[in-house]
Structure formats: C-alpha cells, structure tokens
Design a binder for these strands. Sequence first.
DNA 1: TCCGAAATTATACACTTGATTAATTACTGC
DNA 2: GCAGTAATTAATCAAGTGTATAATTTCGGA
Lengths: 209, 209
Amino acid sequence: MTRRTFHRETEAVRQNDLIAATLDSVAELGLAGATVREVAFRAGVTPGLIRRYFDNKERLVAAAYRTFISDLIAAAEAGCGEGPAQTRLAGLIRASVTAPVADGRTLSIWAAFIGTVHSDPVMAEVHREGYQAFRDLVERLIGEVFAERGTPASAQDIHQRAIVLNALLDGLWIEISMGGDDFSRLNVVQIALNSTATLLGIDPADFKD
Amino acid sequence: MTRRTFHRETEAVRQNDLIAATLDSVAELGLAGATVREVAFRAGVTPGLIRRYFDNKERLVAAAYRTFISDLIAAAEAGCGEGPAQTRLAGLIRASVTAPVADGRTLSIWAAFIGTVHSDPVMAEVHREGYQAFRDLVERLIGEVFAERGTPASAQDIHQRAIVLNALLDGLWIEISMGGDDFSRLNVVQIALNSTATLLGIDPADFKD
DNA sequence: TCCGAAATTATACACTTGATTAATTACTGC
DNA sequence: GCAGTAATTAATCAAGTGTATAATTTCGGA
C-alpha cells in the first residue's frame, strides 16, 4: 500500500489554496458544507494538513472571510479609478452593481458569513472592519464631490447622505446579485447612477462615469 | 427511576412552540446552534418528539423560516394602516426602519437563514415567496401614491422606482438593525422618509405619516 | 549523493449530530 | 372509574465532525 504522492508548497501558497477552497465550498455548499474534509479535498490535500497552517477550523473560516471582504472592497475601489471625485464616485457605483462585485457567488458567500456575525465575536470583528472601510470610502467620496461642486456640506450632512447612499448601494447590490428580477433587461448602472444623483441633489444628466 | 412528567398539547401549539424554540436558537446561537437537542430543550420537550411534528429537521427549519418571514411582512404591513396611499407608504417606511422589524434579533435570524438560500432549494423557495410579497406591496403602494397625486406613471416607471425604493429600505433596515452607527442620535424615520420622498420626486415637507 | 528537517499523509479518537424504536405516560370517550 | 389510544420519553444507532498523532515522504543543503 503506497501513499499518495505530494509536493511541498510555500506557506503563502498553501494558505491561499486552503482559503480559496474554503470560499468555493461555502459558495457551493453553504457554511455547513465547508467541512475540513471538503475543503481539504478541494485544495487537493489531506484534512490533517489544515491544522499545520491554521490553528483550528475557526481560524481558517475567519481568514477566508477576511480575504473575501478585502477582495470585495478592493474590487469596488478599483472601479473608482482616477480623476475628479464625481467620476470616482460614479465608478464606485458602477462597480458595486456589476460583476464581479454584484453576482450570485459573491452574494452566497457574503450571506453565509453574515449569518455567523451575531453569534461569533471573531467574525463580528472581521465584519465590522470591512463594513466600516466601505462606509468611510463612500463618505469621503461624497464629501469630495460636494467640495468639488463648490457646495461644501457640513460633516453631519455628509454623514447622513453617506448612510443613505450606502444603504441604497447595499440594497441594490443584494437585489441584483440575488437575480430575482430580470435585471438583464434593465440598465442597472443607469438606475443606480440616477438614483444616487437624485439623492445627492445632483442633476442626473450631469452624473456619469 | 421515574420518567419526567409531561402534558399533551395540540398539534398547533406544539408546532408553534417548536418553531419559536427554533427561531430563538437561531437568533442566539446561529443556525449551527439550532440542533435538534437545543430546540427540544428550549421547547421543554424531548428531542424525539420533534420527529412526530416535523418529518425531519430540514422541514422544521423551513417551517421556522416561513413563519419568520410572514410575521416580518405582517409587521411591516401593519404599519400601513388605513387612509391615503401616501400615508400608508409612509407608515410602511416607518415600520421598516423601527422595531420590531428593524432590530438586532430580527437581523440575526434573517442573516442566518439567508445564508442557506443559495445551497438549499427549499429555503430558496420560501425566500422567493416572501421577498416577492414585500416587493409587490411596495410597488403597489408607489403606483397608488402617483395615481393619488394626479401624476400616474407607466408600469415600467413604477417598477423601476419600486426596485430602487425597495433597495433603499432593505439597506437602511440592515444598517439600522446592525447597529454599527449611533442611530440613537439620528432620526432614522425622518431620514428614511426624506430620502424616499426625494427618490419619488415628492416634496419631503409634503411626505409625513 | 545522501542526510536531516520539515511538510504531508494516514489513521484513529472522542464527540456531536439527526434519526429510529420500544417503553411509558397522559388524556379521551365510554 | 376504566380501558384504549395517541403523545411523549428514554435509550440507542450509525454517520459525520474537528482534532490529535505517528508514520512517511519530499527536498534543500552538506
């Protein structure tokens, strides 16, 4: 009886592979389906190996959540690009309502993790960080847009508008990713841009990316 | 060795108790914590009994999800009350961003269940029904509001506005329920009403409940 | 080329889970 | 009051879980 062959990998590669396998498992089978054995199988590895790179399964799942969220925010942030604040905000909105940010797989993973936040302090902390990062990004952009238009607003006003815009983007993201409606016939980007302009008191015709 | 005493209950009462115990378990311990034993304990009953009222655990969880969603929609709908459409819409919005609809426990349960929707067809169907019911309610109210104001809109226009308003309400509901911000200092109802009015092209001063 | 350290596998363990079944109890109709 | 029925308990089972550990293999450095 011969053992299966294997080849060594660096710590970074193995951790990445294990995290990727975890996210795949969560996306397809839900959090309950992301067992140690399932993850190991998808990573082409033996269950016992996981414990060499992560103290326990809880750490692995938390690490997966952390990279998932930071990748998600990075993808949205990448949509901002360069240029005037208004263009960057429009880019962020476009990125938020189109793939790969807005898509079924992303929503599935997000949903699975979000369900653990309330009863798991570690996951709650990971969530809080990521959420705040996105919220701060939106708030900062709104402030810059107003300043750019020569109509600077109070910090409180900007804060409230950030709350509302953030809520709208979250909601649209969920709706679109869920795919309940037939969004293929709707120009979701246009809808998102128009409603954002309306909420911010900007002429929609003046708000494009 | 004497057995523990018990008393019989009607099928309806036992089912309600078991569903309530399931929702309590999910709210406090997450879906993973809602084991057959935990639910039975909270219902003051023995694990084996569950199988007399629900074919299996999957059915119990699905039933719990169904009553949770229909109760949630009923609570929101109750905020509508009577009167002109604009008042009813304002009532729905108020109800959506205040307790008991918007609160931590409700969000926890929602989040836990939503995570199963993608990988569990039964849960997906339960979700779809409830989601559509709320969306239809919002869309119908918007249509009535426009008709009432003497500015009837096309079905497509109403549909798009419903998508946006629904997204805003979902997002606000999540933000508020999550409690990340210090919403106690903010008048969330006023914020929600104002942004809704803005999105619908109504004078905010003219939109109260 | 070969040795030693480190990575990986294989196996096993203790525990929890959902499910099953027989024994017991409470209640209903007579 | 009593018998029969149906609800409930108690005890058990097999499967799956995360974890621990010893045996094996790989691979870089002498």
